[in-house]
Design a protein around this nucleic acid. Structure first.
Length: 480
RNA sequence: CGGGGUGUUGCGCAGUUGGUAGCGCGCCUGCUUUGGGAGCAGGAGGCCCGGGGUUCGAGUCCCCGCACUCCGACCA
């Protein structure tokens, strides 16, 4: 048997050699994605799309548990509608794509292909919200959106990408704020407990917040290369959009009020996060809870009598136990199959051959550690379930260690600079709250503010940049 | 949008002073194999990114585009 840490997959560039190339190699070799003829628009291949489907299924269930309903709104936004909220249109105008023709006729008014749907939801909410009895409205939409990005990378930045956008309306600011935090926590819980990605929850600075929002909250994750990936956002809008769109309701006090609004979203970008959080030099490593195939059964020496039947029996037992299992009985060699499913990140490989059959056992290999264990056939289902949980825990622990090892308290700008140059990661400092200091940090050490963590930790009394009294603890980093 | 790199068969590449294309992998057929990317034999597959030029003749030289990719800038 091969040594555990040996590199098995030669087609993938080592991440230490070239991280960006490694990432692209994994996307292509694991058959997640293909390039299309349109720059920045990608084809989600079956294996990549299946990951998204599993993410959708889990999240959709959580959204419904928290009282949300799915809707679907048009993909085109009239220019006049988009322009109703000033900050919002300023933020999105540079990356809008427009429809100007209907058939062969020029349209009276051009239509923007939705970059996000706040304006459409507002137009609709104006029609359906009249009384405090109509509130709250808790809507979610699964769809794709379009942003004309200048550069693109698989999963991380597409011109068209898949996402969900929640849009809710509430009678009071308190209720809306509560919703904003509820959904941030849904995302954090999902990332940690399903995707095995540890997060830092926090609030964005004014500079980094969503155009038109009063407050933007984020879950930030750290990738293998110590860069940050914003993996989900939740916005509190106050009544800004409601005023701009003239949405009112009559309260129980018989007075007219503007409702208070939230929106929140995650996208296929999370798949990029999975790749860069868990992947290794042999390819993709999938967290078991969203892996399209959790266990791949491989018959060894399958030409020998009874092997195929024994493997099929294992497959059936695993499926019956609710495990997403498949079998590869193609005539590829054992080595080829092992390498293939490592590259594709399948959490467990279940092998059975003549020797195992004699002993009444099978061999299970973990993708995360390469560790092989022999388990008695009688304990198959419970051991596989246990191992899937162990893989999840192992991945989480490893990612958590990466996050902690590369988060550094810094007292001076010099320290931040040195830290970013030497290893990179999250620099934890105090901050006065001023835009000038935020810009200076970017200018001098290349970092942007990632978030002001919800768990504030007073590491000093003065701002890391200007030395004036500090208002917040804050994380800085280089972001995707 | 700036700077670099790359466009030749499904993928990865070679192609000299210009002479009408080759290798490896993969694919197909057959036989032999099978506990970590198997071996032998045979076979199929190309508008050399596009458009102009120079030339008797362009994958190759010259101009102009386009795409991908990396690094910046930009990016709720």
């Amino acid at each position: 048997m091969a040594k555990e840490n040996k590199k098995q997959v030669e087609q993938i560039t080592d991440m230490e050699v070239d991280f960006a190339q490694w990432y692209t190699d994994v996307c292509k070799k694991a058959e997640l994605i293909d390039y299309s003829s349109i720059k920045g628009m990608f084809i989600y291949r079956p294996y990549g799309y299946a990951i998204w489907e599993n993410i959708q299924a889990e999240l959709d269930r959580k959204f419904k548990e928290t009282g949300h309903e799915n809707v679907y709104l048009p993909m085109l936004i009239p220019e006049s509608l988009l322009q109703k909220e000033k900050d919002h249109v300023e933020g999105f105008a540079p990356e809008c794509a427009w429809v100007t023709l209907g058939g062969s006729e020029k349209l009276e008014e051009k239509y923007c292909i939705r970059p996000t749907s706040e304006t459409l939801f507002c137009e609709h909410y104006k029609n359906v919200i009249h009384s405090h009895r109509d509130l709250p409205k808790l809507y979610n939409q699964w769809c794709s959106v379009l942003r004309w990005e200048k550069t693109s990378r698989p999963f991380l930045r597409h011109r068209e990408f898949l996402w969900q956008e929640g849009h809710t309306m509430h009678a009071t600011p308190e209720e809306a704020r509560e919703e904003t935090m509820r959904m941030l926590n849904v995302y954090a819980d999902f990332l940690e407990n399903v995707l095995a990605m540890p997060v830092v929850k926090g609030r964005k600075t004014d500079k980094e917040k969503f155009n038109g929002a009063e407050e933007t909250y984020t879950v930030e994750c750290m990738m293998h290369d110590h860069k940050a990936l914003q993996s989900g956002t939740s916005h509190y809008f106050g009544d800004g959009f409601a005023k701009a769109f003239d949405i009112t309701f009559t309260g129980s006090d018989n007075q007219l009020h503007h409702p208070h609004q939230t929106s929140w979203g995650v996208s296929t970008r999370m798949i990029g996060g999975i790749i860069m959080t868990h992947g290794d030099n042999n390819g993709l490593v999938l967290p078991p809870r969203i892996a399209p195939v959790q266990a791949m059964v491989i018959p060894v020496a399958q030409h020998k009598e009874g092997v195929l039947e024994a493997a099929s029996a294992l497959l059936e037992r695993l499926k019956k136990a609710g495990i997403r299992a498949k079998m590869d009985s193609s005539d590829q060699s054992m080595g080829w199959k092992a390498a293939e499913y490592e590259m594709k990140g399948v959490p467990l490989r279940v092998e059975i051959g003549p020797k195992d059959m004699e002993k009444g056992q099978c061999c299970i290999c973990r993708r995360d550690s390469g560790e092989k264990v022999f388990v008695p056939l009688s304990e198959l289902e419970e051991d596989v379930k246990w191992l899937l949980d162990e893989v999840h825990k192992g991945l989480y622990a490893r990612a958590k260690k990466n996050l902690e090892d590369h988060t550094r308290v810094c007292m001076t700008l010099e320290e931040v600079k040195t830290f970013m140059e030497r290893e990179g990661g999250f620099a934890k400092t105090m901050w006065c709250g001023g835009l000038d200091c935020e810009l200076a940090m970017k200018e001098q050490s290349g970092v942007t503010s990632r978030c002001m963590p919800l768990e504030q930790e007073r590491v000093s009394d003065v701002c890391v940049c200007c030395g004036k009294p500090a208002k917040h603890s804050i994380l800085w980093g280089v972001a995707y």
